[in-house]
Each structure stands twice: as structure tokens, then as C-alpha cells.
């Protein structure tokens, strides 16, 4: 009996699969949830950011850009289309200003349209004047 069961294993698996539920989902109709700890797009805590540029220095994909005028006046831009979601910026930041969310930026054919300006002090300065 055991011997027969071993030999018929594929047939058993077939019956098992036929009686069980399908494991795939029809995707656009059924929403898929990303896990809690998923590394998605990054977000910046503007209060904590001091514009040191360590994240830009360690980013392997040039996904972050920093335009600096003076020590406190700067603009930090995030390019999701270049981002490798590696988590290096989160690790590089000494003040824990950058964190990953578990959301992904939507797909697009125009990478320019999804650029996020994380912090822009230059504009603030201009409007103050």
C-alpha cells in the first residue's frame, strides 16, 4: 500500500489540487496587499532632516538629489523611477529622517511625472521674502 502510494504520488497530488482551492487570484479584481515590512517608496520627516547629504552620497542608484545653497537652504528631490528600493538611505541617515513606506509609486510611462520633492527650503525662503 505504502509502495503504491509512493508510486502514485503525482496522481494523488493531482487529485488534491483538483479538490483544493486555486492558489492564484485574478489580479486586478482582487487587491494584493504588500507585507507590513515591505520596502516601498521612501518618505522624509522634514523636521528631522538637516540636509547633510549622507543619503545622497550612499544612494547606489542616484535616486536622491540635493541642491544646496547654504547650510540650511537646500532642496532634496526623490526620483522613484531610479530608486532601487535598497534601503541604503534609511540606513545612512543619522537622524532617522528617511523611512520606507510599504507603498509603491504607481507605474507610469513618464518617469518625470512621479518625481517627489521631499523638502524644498529654497521655495520657502523665496516666498518669505
Amino acid at each position: 500500500m505504502q509502495w503504491l502510494k509512493k508510486r502514485m504520488r503525482l496522481l494523488l497530488a493531482l487529485v488534491e489540487a483538483l479538490t483544493g482551492e486555486a492558489e492564484t487570484v485574478s489580479y486586478p479584481k482582487t487587491e494584493l496587499e504588500l507585507p507590513k515590512g515591505y520596502r516601498g517608496a521612501i518618505q522624509l520627516d522634514e523636521e528631522k532632516c538637516i540636509g547633510c547629504g549622507l543619503c545622497v552620497m550612499d544612494c547606489p542608484a542616484h535616486g536622491l538629489e540635493l541642491e544646496k545653497e547654504s547650510k540650511s537652504v537646500y532642496k532634496l528631490t526623490y526620483y522613484p523611477a531610479r530608486c532601487a528600493y535598497c534601503g541604503q538611505c534609511e540606513r545612512a541617515c543619522h537622524r532617522q529622517a528617511i523611512t520606507h513606506t510599504n507603498q509603491l509609486p504607481g507605474s507610469t510611462t513618464d518617469p518625470e511625472s512621479i518625481i517627489v520633492i521631499l523638502k524644498d527650503q529654497k521655495e520657502q525662503e523665496d516666498s518669505d521674502e
Partner: peptide
């Protein structure tokens, strides 16, 4: 799924630094 849940990535786990 377990690896993704733990590290945050399915293929590029980015575990090490």
C-alpha cells in the same frame, strides 16, 4: 513570502550592511 515579510524585499532582500 517569509523572506519578504522579514527583510522587505522578495528578490533583493537588502539584508546586509
Amino acid at each position: 513570502d517569509v523572506m519578504e515579510e522579514m527583510s522587505g524585499g522578495r528578490v533583493a532582500h537588502a539584508v546586509n550592511q
